[in-house]
């Protein structure tokens, strides 16, 4: 069977992002494979290492630079990749349409992807993709077992966790704790060079367009209040506890 892992390239966690003229500027930023997607790649590899006969196909959408993230996923051990090349920013629903087409084209039966995307912090893609495909979804998944064609999963909910059972085909999004992703080794980095990456243009997949357009972007900054409590230690401690309890609400 075929497992599709949808990945995204996002700014490095240590990158300093600026907004200019109502748009986030990514100039000079270094990019990495999204950590949440690494869980997806790792889980596919573990299924194969657990004895499942499968091809692992990586799917990515974005500009040419996304190749680097694709190569990382291939160097971790995925078999092949499809890169839908576009400089356009598509919203989650439009992306889901594109990915659903490719998933159907390739005949994949399990789709793994990040629970959310670290760049715009959207968690919509997995759900939108499941909807588009008409497949069951386990989001925020922390454990996955496959017995024949039956999936058993544990996933996070707002207040706790649930155990889910569902048949293939299915869409599974990742959560921290699902696994510990491996590093791509140097030998695998060199082998990845020889793995096939298919390039598709967005036009080849029929017309898709976003229903939403980002009209203006700003980066949240929090001004510190720079208040210094004064008085003797006992007074300051009392005041601090009071503020932590009643203002910050971090103490019960």
């Amino acid at each position: 069977m075929k497992i599709a892992v949808v990945i995204k390239q996002v700014p490095d966690v240590e990158a300093r992002i600026r907004a200019e003229d109502g748009k986030v500027s990514l100039d000079g930023v270094s990019f990495i494979l999204d950590g949440m997607d690494e869980y997806g790649v790792e889980e596919a590899l573990r299924l194969r290492e657990g004895g499942l006969e499968c091809d692992i196909s990586v799917l990515a959408l974005g500009p040419a630079r996304v190749q680097d993230a694709i190569r990382t996923a291939l160097a971790m051990g995925a078999d092949e990749a499809t890169h839908i090349v576009t400089d356009d920013q598509l919203d989650a629903l439009a992306q889901a349409k594109v990915f659903a087409d490719v998933v159907r084209m390739q005949g994949a039966e399990l789709v793994l992807l990040g629970g959310k995307q670290a760049d715009w912090d959207s968690a919509a893609l997995g759900a939108a993709l499941a909807e588009e495909l008409g497949w069951p979804l386990s989001d925020w998944t922390t454990s996955l077992e496959l017995e024949g064609r039956a999936l058993t999963l544990r996933h996070d909910t707002d207040q706790g966790t649930e155990r889910l059972e569902m048949p293939l085909p299915a869409v599974v999004t990742t959560q921290q704790g699902l696994n510990e992703p491996r590093y791509p080794t140097l030998p695998n980095i060199m082998k990845a060079k020889r793995k096939p990456v298919e390039l598709l243009s967005l036009a080849e997949l029929g017309s898709v367009s976003s229903l939403t357009r980002i009209a203006d972007e700003a980066i949240e900054t929090r001004d510190r209040r720079n208040e210094i409590l004064s008085g003797d230690a006992a007074t300051v401690a009392k005041e601090l506890v009071d503020r932590l309890r009643n203002e910050a609400r971090v103490l019960a």
């Binding site: 680097d68 190569r71 160097a75 590093y183 791509p184 140097l186 980095i189 060199m190 990845a192 060079k193």
Partner: peptide
């Protein structure tokens, strides 16, 4: 090369 950037990224992450 792509490959050199990958190696650099691996070494950076390992460091």
């Amino acid at each position: 090369t792509d490959e050199q950037r990958q190696m650099q990224a691996l070494a950076r992450q390992f460091a």
